[in-house]
């Protein structure tokens, strides 16, 4: 079987048609990829999984608060993806290709850069506090408010009891008016 792409290729290939076919298909694939990439994505090709993982990692370029998947720098020679971010994504890509799990990849990044590489601190150890406090604090405040409200209400009861004597009719009328007022 002859192929228009590899016709006239080296002797070795001609001597081994099976290998030639494989080579041929491989070049065809490469050519197709090259065509597909021609208008091409500027950054290194990343799998969606790599991009998703990159969202959990802080870009370690040191100049931003951004993630490895989103870091671009407006200053400097190129405002596209930052080199550090690209290198990080490339590493993720390679690790995914090696079949590593997401957890392992993230863990290795933490080992390399320290926990600061994670955009959100993991909810364990001391850093657990960062997550639990914003939930606990309002609850605690709610309890405090409850206590304040209870005290205000108790004072309301006390003041009514200690007030000047009021005839039952007047009190009744007052209640009716109050209800009417709040209905309006």
């Amino acid at each position: 079987m002859d192929c228009f792409i590899c016709s006239g290729a080296q002797g070795e290939l001609q001597r081994n048609p099976g290998r030639r076919l494989r080579r041929c298909l491989a070049s065809l694939l490469l050519a197709l990829l090259a065509v597909a990439a021609a208008p091409g994505i500027a950054s290194a090709q990343q799998t969606p999984r790599a991009k998703a993982l990159g969202l959990h990692l802080k870009c370690m370029c040191g100049g931003c608060n951004d993630t490895a998947s989103t870091c671009t720098h407006s200053g400097g020679a190129f405002a596209g993806p930052c080199d550090t971010a690209k290198a990080m994504l490339k590493e993720i890509d390679q690790r995914i290709a090696r079949g590593e799990s997401d957890g392992l990849i993230l863990q290795d990044f933490v080992q390399e850069y320290g926990p600061t590489v994670l955009v959100e601190p993991p909810a364990k150890g001391f850093n657990w506090l960062v997550w639990i406090t914003p939930v606990l604090a309002p609850l605690l405040a709610l309890v405090l408010i409850w206590e304040v409200v209870r005290r205000w209400r108790r004072r309301a009861a006390l003041e009514l009891a200690g007030g000047p004597p009021v005839s039952p009719e007047l009190l009744d009328r007052a209640r009716r008016e109050a209800e009417k007022e709040s209905d309006e």
Partner: peptide, 10 residues
């Protein structure tokens, strides 16, 4: 003693 980040997702 170790640096951490608290980024936009938090």
């Amino acid at each position: 003693g170790s640096k951490i980040s608290v980024g936009p997702p938090f």
